[in-house]
């Protein structure tokens, strides 16, 4: 369903991705782990076509993204919902306009209908009565949930999560994890998350892949990853300062 084949990407002299291969099946939940600055976000941005690979290809439902024009890419993106790290809510719009943005732009629904649809998605993420607030009036956890409501508003087939629990307190982080699992069960979406929060990764993943030095060095179920013998993965999941990963690498 989603396939990355040999993705290379450099920013200036910084060769971030050095041949990333990753396949995600329909309905699967894959978590990519890796240190800060290892290029995890870059992977997500390639999947949704925000960045173009220097070499390699991205396939969504066997459509090659590099062969698409602007309109084609725009149509593919309607299959996606993305939750950004800091939610990326439009700060000039009310909460319901944020959640209903896609519907306002791409459907024939009236404002009242969009508002009602937005309320329904907000209830799904456990928020009520916030429709008319501005994003600046929300707490971090609420922003993330509004961002999630916006991501699912167009009923996407694929959900992308950029560090969904970063910056949240442990309880709110777990609330978001539970929501991610729920979204998958209820809406039957394929999901790809990137994180360095191992608790979150174990909770939401069917499969975990570790990105290190610009390539996926290890892949497996949460149990396989927990019991891996790979010293690099061991160091990362246990969070040790000592080990094969040195600071300049992450």
């Amino acid at each position: 369903m989603i396939e990355l084949a040999g993705i290379h990407k450099s920013f200036g002299s910084n060769h971030v991705l050095r041949g990333v291969d990753l396949k995600v099946k329909k309905g699967e939940s894959v978590v990519v782990i890796g240190g800060s600055g290892s290029g995890k976000s870059v992977i997500l941005k390639h999947i949704i076509g925000l960045l173009k690979p220097d070499s390699g290809k991205v396939f969504i439902d066997s459509t090659d993204l590099s062969g698409l024009d602007e309109d084609g890419l725009s149509n593919i993106r309607k299959k996606f919902g993305m939750l950004f790290q800091s939610a990326a809510l439009f700060d000039s719009m009310r909460v319901w306009e944020n959640v209903g943005f896609g519907l306002l732009r791409h459907s024939e629904m009236s404002n009242d209908e969009v508002r009602e649809a937005a309320s329904q998605k907000l209830r799904l993420v456990g928020l009520a009565g916030v429709e008319d607030l501005m994003p600046s009036e929300l707490s971090g956890g609420m922003r993330k949930r509004v961002g999630l409501a916006r991501a699912i508003a167009m009923e996407p087939e694929i959900l992308l999560y950029d560090e969904p629990t970063t910056g949240l307190d442990p309880i709110m982080a777990d609330v978001i994890d539970v929501l991610i699992v729920e979204m998958r069960e209820r809406l039957n979406v394929t999901s790809i998350a990137i994180t360095h929060d191992m608790k979150s990764a174990y909770k939401i993943a069917d499969r975990i892949a570790m990105l290190y030095n610009g390539v996926i060095i290890s892949e497996g179920t949460p149990d396989e990853i927990k019991n891996t013998a790979d010293p690099v993965v061991r160091q990362f999941i246990e969070g040790n300062a000592e080990g094969p990963i040195t600071l300049e690498r992450i």
Partner: peptide, 21 residues
């Protein structure tokens, strides 16, 4: 200032993910 803030807070990326140029 407005577009710059939207860029650095990923709001412009968010527009693209919502299939809006």
């Amino acid at each position: 200032a407005e577009l710059g803030t939207m860029r650095v807070t990923e709001q412009i990326d968010a527009l693209e993910t919502l299939a809006t140029n």
